[in-house]
Structure formats: structure tokens, C-alpha cells
Design a protein around this nucleic acid. Structure first.
Lengths: 124, 124
DNA sequence: TTGACATATTCCTATATGGGAATGTAATGT
DNA sequence: ACATTACATTCCCATATAGGAATATGTCAA
């Protein structure tokens, strides 16, 4: 056999980085396809195809509005992933990281505004 | 292009159900390959190949002991997955479910009292 | 050494992509 | 009706499996 279909479940669907980006982008509000294309810098057919996969596994919902279609992330469909990962929570380096994070938080509180925003800025 | 390699990252590696089963099985303690084969009912070469993938992305660690190799899940490597999923946590039906669960709990508490006090139970 | 045991790797094959290009389709404007 | 806008789908193709069979490698025992 070959690898399982990307439409078989959420685990397979989110294995693709672009689909994760799309989900993140559509998490807060519904957007038309064109916005996704512009925001992520992908080809329109590519976005449509990714949305198709995401829709098949229920990770996004779609609504028609005139000639555009508005998509939004269905966050609930991500819960199974979160819960599966959470079953390993008790094996993490719990207190170790907590101590570290707490220390870092205190440092940040002191330094505050040195680092404002960190990740992907795809502005043009 | 085709789909990304399963060894490219944890997201791709855990897209395969059997690999998730292996990770779960190896979460609590290290086990030799043969135990995995017996426990999950898979072919030995298949297990070895899955372990190879899991090892390449750091999801399991291996230790040699005589002629057998002991594997264990490296839970920390699962944290990125958990954290990615957690970024959607604020979009879940949080309070909704909590309110519902709380209401149900109250109902149950009430019913329980009623039942214990005055019983016309036809339960079996 | 020889053999048994525990794993890993290789070979083969059917299948499932994901990107690019081209095309199809539905809704809206003039 | 016709052009335009906004998406979706189809076709082609290089690539990456995952399983099964066969084989290779490594370790310990007699």
C-alpha cells in the first residue's frame, strides 16, 4: 500500500505545512480564497486544493457569499490532535520546563519590550 | 512534487496510525522490537521501518542491549504538535462545553439526591 | 565454527500525492 | 450577451510511501 489519504483524517491533513498555515490564517475569522492566496503567497489552484482536503476532513467550514466563498477554521476538529498529544503530557520534562519558563517569564517581565513580534512576516 | 517525507518532521511521522500506536505503546517504558510486534500484531519488518521513521524525527530513542534494541518514546518531541494544536484552543467551544458540563453535573447531583432520598427506581 | 535469535534493510509495486498549466464554472457588472 | 471576477477541477508527472517477501547484519550459545 501507499501512504494514507490526506483526506482520511486530521492527522494526515495537517501533515502538510501549507495546510497548517491556512488553518492558522483562518482561525480568527472567515476569509475569501483570494485573501489566503495573497496572505500566504500561494497559487490559487493550490489553495483551492488544500481547502478541499481541509474541508473533506472537517478542518474548515465554507460559506458562499456572492461570487466568493468564505472559509474559516473549525477549531473543534483540531481537538483530537491536541488530545492525542496531551496523552504524552505526563512524560514531558514537566517541572523542569516550568521552572525554566517561569524564570524566562520573569526575565521578560524585566526586559519587557525588547522582542516585540517574532514569526512570519510575509508582508510586501 | 509529491507529499513531504515522513522523516521531514513529527507532523508527517505521526500521520501514520501505526506509528501513533507505537508511540503510545512505548510511552511508558522502553521495549524491545519483538514486544511491539507481539503487542500490535504487525510484521517485524514493518515495525522496524516505522521505528526508523520515528527515530529519524526524534520521536523515539534507542538503546542496544545484547542482541535486542530497546526503544522508548521521546515525549518531548511530541510537544511541538501539542503546542501547535493548542494555539487553536481559544477558538474551541470552551466555556460552552464547560457551562454544559457544569449544568449536567448539577442536574446529576440533583437527581442523585432525589434518587437517594425517595426511590421509585426501576433500574436493574 | 555453526546455528538460532533479534532486528534492519533491500527490492518490488500499487497508490496517493502536490505543484504547474490549462480549463471549467458560477456570479456579477455593463 | 459578453467580459470579468472568484474559485474549483482536471491533467500530467516526479516523488514518497507502506506492505510483503527475501535477504542482510549483529549477537549470543553450544
Amino acid at each position: 500500500m501507499a501512504r494514507a489519504s490526506t483526506t482520511s483524517d486530521a492527522f494526515n491533513a495537517v501533515a502538510e505545512p501549507r495546510r497548517r498555515e491556512i488553518l492558522t490564517y483562518l482561525a480568527g475569522a472567515e476569509r475569501p480564497v483570494g485573501d489566503i492566496v495573497d496572505a500566504l503567497g500561494l497559487e490559487q489552484p493550490s489553495v483551492s486544493k488544500h481547502l478541499r482536503v481541509l474541508r473533506d476532513v472537517g478542518l474548515v467550514r465554507m460559506r458562499c457569499q456572492g461570487r466568493q466563498k468564505l472559509y474559516r477554521t473549525n477549531a473543534d476538529a483540531i481537538r483530537p490532535l491536541h488530545e492525542w498529544a496531551a496523552t504524552f503530557e505526563r512524560y514531558w520534562q514537566h517541572q523542569l520546563n516550568r521552572v525554566k519558563e517561569r524564570a524566562e517569564a520573569m526575565v521578560r517581565a524585566g526586559v519587557k519590550d525588547l522582542n516585540s513580534k517574532n514569526t512570519n512576516d510575509k508582508e510586501k
